[in-house]
Amino acid sequence: FVHCFADWFANHRPATVMIGIRADESINRFNAIASGRKQRFADDKPWTSVAARGHSWYVYPIYDWKTADVWTWFAKSGERYNPLYNLMYQAGVPLRYMRICEPFGPEQRQGLWLYHVLEPERWAAMCERVSGVCSGGVYAGKDNTFYGHRKISKPDGHSWQSYASLLLYSMPAPTARHYKNKIAVYINWYRKKGFEIPDTQDGDIGYKDIPSWRRICKVLLNNDYWCRALSFSPNKPGNYKRYSERMAEKRKEWGILCDND
């Protein structure tokens, strides 16, 4: 959508589109700006990149701002800002974690508890409209292991591999098949290199892809549908059905996570 908007806005003439992301917000936003493979408007302007078809350019005017810089600017300029930030401050949310956006992403759902504190009427409407919101408000907090975001735990008596099997077994069949296809490719790739994925190893649930069954469990708990944490990218919609059918046969051939497992 962003590329299409820039192309429409340019209308075959030079144009710039300003984007208000900051590099310290996330590793993905840092990479969007810092990637050395991107074409710049000029070599001395690293805070720019070319849009989809070359008619327009993206400009990131606050790419190097820190959280303190944002609030310093508001304090000095006297400009208005969203008053929800005042309520977040009163609720004890640190400045670096204050964010106003959609509520149900992997990062955002950790702030679900704020809705019933800051906007109880909206919280009541969300609970009526969206299944699982109340559970998310209870279990998605930053120190909770239920969704496996920063911390992760397993039931007593399980290895991480057996826990992964339990999680797959608990899912609807089409969803389980989708994850089994991805995990089977992941396991087989390492097997071909002579490496069996261990149950766990140091650093395996961090940003870097360090293979383990514990990392696979984190993917399942996070509902990371395209398994980005296992270094996959989304399949093209037109090819997905053919891919799924081919992978079902491959899993049988490899003997990895067959449908009766």
Score class of each variant (00 low, 15 high):
Val130Leu: 04
Asp44Arg: 10
Gly194Ser: 07
Gly255His: 10
Pro198Glu: 03
Glu119Ile: 09
Gln90Met: 11
Arg13Cys: 06
Asp204Cys: 15
Arg228Asn: 11
Lys66Val: 02
Ala164Gln: 03
Ile33Ala: 05
Glu121Ala: 14
Cys258Ser: 08
Trp8Tyr: 11
Trp47Tyr: 09
Pro94Ser: 05
Tyr63Glu: 10
His55Trp: 14
Trp65Lys: 02
Ala124Thr: 12
Gln201Phe: 08
Asp64Gln: 11
Gly238Phe: 04
Cys134Ser: 12
Tyr139Arg: 14
Ala124Trp: 00
Val138Glu: 10
Glu245Thr: 12
Arg191Trp: 10
Asn188Pro: 00
Gly36Arg: 13
Tyr179Val: 06
Asp259Ala: 13
Thr72Gly: 15
Arg99Tyr: 04
Arg40Gly: 05
Tyr97Gly: 00
Gln201Ile: 15
Lys151Asp: 15
Leu87Gly: 01
Val133Cys: 01
Gly141Ala: 08
Pro120Lys: 02
Lys192Ser: 05
Asn181Arg: 12
Ala6Leu: 12
Ser170Glu: 12
Trp254Asn: 04
Glu245Cys: 10
Cys217Met: 00
Glu245Val: 13
Ile216His: 02
Ala23Asn: 04
Leu95Ala: 15
Trp254His: 04
Lys180Gly: 04
Gln161Ala: 14
Tyr89Trp: 09
Trp57Phe: 04
Lys241Trp: 07
Gln161Leu: 08
Met88Tyr: 03
Gln110His: 05
Phe5Leu: 15
Val59Gln: 01
Lys66Gln: 13
His149Lys: 15
Trp189Tyr: 15
Leu87Phe: 04
Ile62Val: 14
Leu230Ala: 07
Tyr63Arg: 08
Met18Gln: 12
Ile183Thr: 06
Gly78Ile: 10
Ser49Lys: 04
Thr72Glu: 14
Gly36Cys: 05
Leu112Arg: 05
Tyr240Pro: 00
Asn82Gln: 02
Tyr190Lys: 09
